[in-house]
């Protein structure tokens, strides 16, 4: 659906993208994750034709992005902080936006009413948007992005600035849109959000793609399960980490003070082996099984702090 190869973009002395690759399958919710300044927003802006790449190719449904008009008809974009015409009401902003897409008449009016209703904006739709909260503005931005019924939605940090209730509503809206067949690209540095929403991810760092795959596949590569073993002191933890790393079933071992974290693939067969070996070495004060998170995956591939 979207294919980007070897994208580069420079802003003055800053090289924002240094050969980024991105592949987005039809009907998927794909996450674009990376630390601040990795090039996530730049990528979204290039895909929405707002900025021009210095080099590289991008196609949307096999149409080169340089043919802007056709590509933009297929795309809806929701910026991180949507700026709207504050003196207008949501309804008149939607009306104006619809006309930009060649829509009009009763059909546009009824479509606007439907979208206002589905995004729970009916109480405020006719008030000037200067009085709207961040959540309301975000919902208006989603309404604007959806009005022309695009195949692809580009969401830049969709959850930023939203309170937990609105986040939940937003998550449901995104999932519902995906069920209706929309292909969605979510750029976010909140890995929890991406983990909850996405089927696949592209991890980027310093303007380059580090890895791109389905989350399940990445989890498999990182280890499906982690076991946290708490021992009496740091010395014992260090020795246990070293010994466990020699086992074939262990994918990765890390240590945090008295805590040893062991990543494995097959919980049924691997856990007893590890517990047995650990208890032979030292006294285990506590043992806990945890799921491998997207943060673990990110740390493995990007190898650094994000956020």
């Amino acid at each position: 659906m979207i294919v980007a190869n070897d994208l580069t973009k420079r802003f003055g002395k800053v090289e924002a993208l240094k050969g980024l690759d991105l592949h987005l399958k039809k009907g998927s919710i794909h996450g674009l994750i990376g630390p601040n300044g990795a090039g996530k927003s730049t990528t979204i802006k290039i895909l929405s034709t707002l900025i021009h790449p210095d080099s590289g190719d991008v196609t949307v449904n096999d149409i080169p992005i340089k043919r802007g008009v056709k590509v933009r008809s297929m795309i809806g974009v929701v910026p991180e902080t949507p700026r709207l015409h504050e003196n207008k009401s949501a309804r008149s902003e939607l009306m104006y936006h619809g006309r930009l897409y060649g829509m009009g008449g009763k059909e546009l009016s009824s479509q606007i009413s439907d979208i206002i209703y589905s995004l729970h904006l009916e109480d405020v739709a006719d008030r000037p948007m200067r009085g709207y909260s961040t959540g309301m503005k975000k919902r208006v931005a989603v309404a604007l992005a959806l009005l022309h019924d695009p195949e692809i939605l580009l969401l830049d940090e969709p959850m930023s600035g939203l309170d937990p209730t609105i986040r939940k509503q937003f998550k449901d809206i995104i999932l519902e849109l995906n069920l209706k067949g929309k292909t969605i690209l979510v750029s976010d540095h909140d890995l929890y959000t991406v983990d909850e929403l996405c089927d696949s991810v592209t991890i980027i760092q310093d303007g380059k793609t580090v890895v791109e795959d389905t989350i399940d596949s990445l989890r498999h590569k990182t280890g499906n399960i982690a076991i946290e073993l708490k021992v009496s002191d740091m010395m014992a933890a260090e020795k246990l980490s070293y010994d466990l790393s020699s086992l074939d079933c262990v994918i990765d071992v890390s240590q945090n003070r008295e805590l040893v974290i062991v990543k494995i693939r097959e919980p049924e067969t691997d856990i007893p082996v590890i517990i047995r070996m650990a208890s032979e070495q030292t006294a285990i004060l506590e043992a806990r099984q945890t799921k491998i998170t997207l943060e673990d995956i990110f740390m493995k591939f990007a190898g650094g702090y994000h956020g």
Binding site: L50, G68, V69, R72, S73, R83, L84, L100
Partner: peptide
């Protein structure tokens, strides 16, 4: 300045 140009630039209207 108010960053609303994206609304136009992301629409199918040619620049």
């Amino acid at each position: 300045e108010v960053k609303t140009m994206y609304l136009l630039a992301a629409s199918p209207q040619p620049r």
